[in-house]
């Protein structure tokens, strides 16, 4: 146990002293994951709401694909994007490979289906409850979608948090498209994997603890923001 004790002590030393290398990795991780989640919410929430409310040919097939995509293997997404962004790939002109932008794209691809599927489920549930009332109030289709999205805000917050959890925990895709380059594309998860493989546990431990604290802090803040349930939508 002696070596681990030392690693913990050094990890806390790195955190307390706000080690510049550590802070740079944490900052890049936040930048990549938060950007990916914001973009995924911008795409996934309207998509999920549209799948719940609108009736059009192919809706069920798209819903099926969105649900199936929730379980996309990150390394497969990473490989596909690597091939797309590489010199021989169709998106080579964007010159994104081994950049934070490529990592944001990879995480967005992984997070969007989660946000869309959870939004679709939440809005569909609310639609059963509210749709007849909203139609009786002569709400247009757009007004119905807007009202349902607003009423679903606690569930949408949960969807965003689930997406953020996926983004924070992701290793495979960002490792492949980012390359884990020091000071350029090295984020918390890829650093933990690298440092652990090198036997340098102190930095890995420090990053692991920060990852946990960040996750807890974001969830606590979200719980504080979430409106309290005030009973059923209808009187019994």
């Amino acid at each position: 146990m002696q070596p681990f004790d030392g690693a913990f002590a050094q990890a806390f030393q790195l955190m307390v002293s706000a080690d510049p290398a550590l802070m740079q990795i944490v900052g890049l991780s936040l930048q990549v994951s938060l950007s990916a989640v914001v973009i995924a919410c911008a795409i996934g929430m309207p998509l999920g709401a549209a799948l719940a409310v609108l009736r059009f040919p192919g809706r069920r097939v798209i819903s099926l694909f969105v649900s199936a995509a929730m379980g996309l293997p990150p390394v497969v997404v990473g490989l596909a994007l690597y091939m797309a962004f590489s010199q021989a790939g169709p998106l080579a002109v964007l010159d994104l490979l081994y950049t934070p932008a490529a990592m944001i794209v990879a995480q967005t691809v992984l997070v969007t289906p989660i946000v869309a599927a959870l939004t679709r489920s939440a809005v569909a549930g609310l639609m059963e409850e509210f749709d007849e009332t909203l139609r009786a109030l002569r709400a247009s289709r757009g007004q119905r979608i807007a009202t349902l999205l607003w009423e679903a805000r606690p569930a949408l917050l949960t969807a965003a948090l689930a997406g953020l959890g996926r983004a924070f925990a992701e290793v495979g895709a960002v490792m492949i498209v980012g390359g884990n380059i020091n000071h350029v594309t090295r984020v918390m998860t890829t650093s933990i994997a690298l440092e652990t493989s090198k036997g340098a546990l102190e930095l890995a431990l420090a990053l692991g603890i920060i990852l946990l604290i960040l996750s807890l802090a974001i969830n606590a803040a979200a719980m504080g923001l979430r409106p309290r349930p005030l009973g059923l939508a209808y009187a019994k």
Binding site: T133, A136, L137, R138, T147, P227, A233, Y234, A235
Partner: peptide, 14 residues
């Protein structure tokens, strides 16, 4: 002018 309908169980927004 529309006809307005009120249901047995009122469904109110949060």
């Amino acid at each position: 002018a529309p006809a307005a309908l009120v249901f047995q169980s009122p469904v109110l927004l949060n």
